[in-house]
């Protein structure tokens, strides 16, 4: 595979052909905020938190779905990007009901820690306070739509790692919902294998194991990495 040399925040780095800007940046120790990206499943560019600037273009592009190219000049921390990231984050918080103090994921949540690291001390938009359901019909797991950011990580692991295709999107825009099968209660799904991959892929408190209470739901990404590495590289991580 051909090597590509490009510049990111003034630092010259080399990457392999086909690598995303995000991967190459992380390998070089440059952190770009992400939310819908999950190690081991394909990227879809859903959350836009990883937006970067590429010299010569006015368009902002997601680092996770942009491939590196020779001579590319990428900026990840401009004032404009920081402003947009903060805006996106505030909109995510305003769109659903996030009450960290009483959430199963308090202290272990990717959304909560993004807010911390991007300096979000408050949300400047009026909260929408939508009325949303909590699906507790599954034997082992619960789904709380109040906490869902529609990143689609659950859908991708369910389809492409487990191969069950239970989880899906319904609706458009702010009325989008994660559904099970043909929008039926999760517990009545005939395709769900109860593998729990969606739960552990979920960055927030939206998917959780039943029986966990405030701050107890810690996601184990290691399990997903184990399976994906075994399948793709035929290596069993011990």
């Amino acid at each position: 595979m051909a090597a590509k040399v490009f510049t990111i925040d003034g630092q010259e780095i080399s990457a392999t052909e086909g690598q995303s800007v995000l991967e190459a940046a992380h390998e070089a120790g440059i952190r770009i905020p992400t939310l819908c990206h999950l190690e081991g499943v394909m990227d879809v560019g859903a959350c836009r938190l990883c937006l970067v600037e590429i010299a010569g273009s006015n368009k902002l592009v997601p680092a996770c779905t942009t491939q590196v190219a020779d001579g590319m000049v990428v900026a990840t921390t401009s004032e404009r990007l920081q402003r947009y990231r903060r805006l996106l984050l505030e909109l995510l918080f305003a769109e659903r009901n996030h009450v960290c103090a009483v959430c199963v994921s308090n202290g272990h949540c990717e959304l909560q820690s993004l807010a911390m690291h991007l300096g979000m001390d408050h949300v400047s938009f009026p909260y929408t306070f939508p009325k949303l359901e909590v699906d507790l019909t599954h034997r082992l797991f619960g789904m709380d739509h109040n906490r869902c950011v529609l990143c689609g990580r659950c859908v991708r692991v369910c389809w492409y790692v487990e191969g069950a295709a239970t989880k899906n999107f319904s609706g458009r825009g702010a009325s989008s919902r994660i559904i099970s099968d043909l929008n039926q209660p999760w517990g009545e799904s005939r395709t769900c294998t109860a593998c729990g991959k969606c739960v552990h892929a979920c960055p927030t408190g939206a998917l959780f194991e039943k029986g966990t209470t405030v701050g107890e739901m810690q996601k184990d990404r290691g399990k997903l990495e184990y399976i994906v590495t075994a399948r793709e590289k035929k290596q069993w991580i011990v």
Binding site: N97, V99, V102, H122
Partner: peptide, 20 residues
């Protein structure tokens, strides 16, 4: 100064808001 989550976000006090 908005002091604590209830002042900053509505938090637990605003749990009733979705009820309308």
């Amino acid at each position: 100064v908005a002091f604590g989550d209830c002042a900053v976000t509505g938090n637990v006090t605003a749990l009733r808001n979705p009820l309308g």
